[in-house]
Amino acid sequence: MSKNIIIDGLTVPFQEGQTIMDAAMAAGLYIPHLCHNPEFKPHGSCKLCTVNVNGRNVASCTMPAAEGQQVLNDIAELNAERLALTQMLFVEGNHLCPACEKSGNCNLQGVAYYLGMMSPHYNHFYPAREVDASHPDILLDRNRCIYCELCVRASRDVDGKNVFGLTDRGIMTRLIVNATSGLLGDTSLAATDKAAQVCPTGALLVKRKGFAVPIGSRIFDRHTIKDVQTGGSHE
């Protein structure tokens, strides 16, 4: 007999070892998320995927599914909180979307559209963050980093290279690369590495691929992130 959880009134089957996010995705249900990518070990840092389980908020990407869970997901209160988190991610960095190559394909934008974000709401922090163009094929623009650690996980777990990591803490948290010089050009990162492909924002971009698809015809110009991510395509 298969086991089930209830998400917004729907019965959703799950297998032992799956998280709530896994079960929802398998059933074609969308739970907003940024740091989660089903190809990698769950991380649980962005908190966009927060759902309410039997009265308690938990991150659905890390919480194991278990019989008897009554999950609230697509409800106004949670979506408002997710919107606030998205706005926080925008103001803590420098996201000049019109000037960003990722614009239209960016998951941060994608969830912002989905959640109906009309303004950043909070005051911008305008932090001073470093851009690293030292690598011949890859650009690292820390202004757009949301600390999802997808590049960290991809480099460590898939590429076996450990090119990325985080240092400092709190609001001073910074993405660093594995080189004494601190420069991406001095690491072993290659444009074909998984780590160079996974960034949900425009923080890590493969060079010389600029504007292959014109703005206006890009992923989130044509589809909602919900449709894209429940259709199994993970950009």
């Binding site: 649980g44 840092s45 962005c46 908190k47 966009l48 988190l85 926080m88 991610l89 103001v91 803590e92 909070y122 005051n123 922090f125 949301i146 600390y147 985080l166 400092d168 803490r169 709190g170 609001i171 001073m172 948290t173």
Partner: peptide
Amino acid sequence: FAHESCGFCTPCRVGTELQKK
């Protein structure tokens, strides 16, 4: 709290800083 936030999760990393500001 803003000084001691580990910075892992969005609500605390940014929220404690906003609260401080």
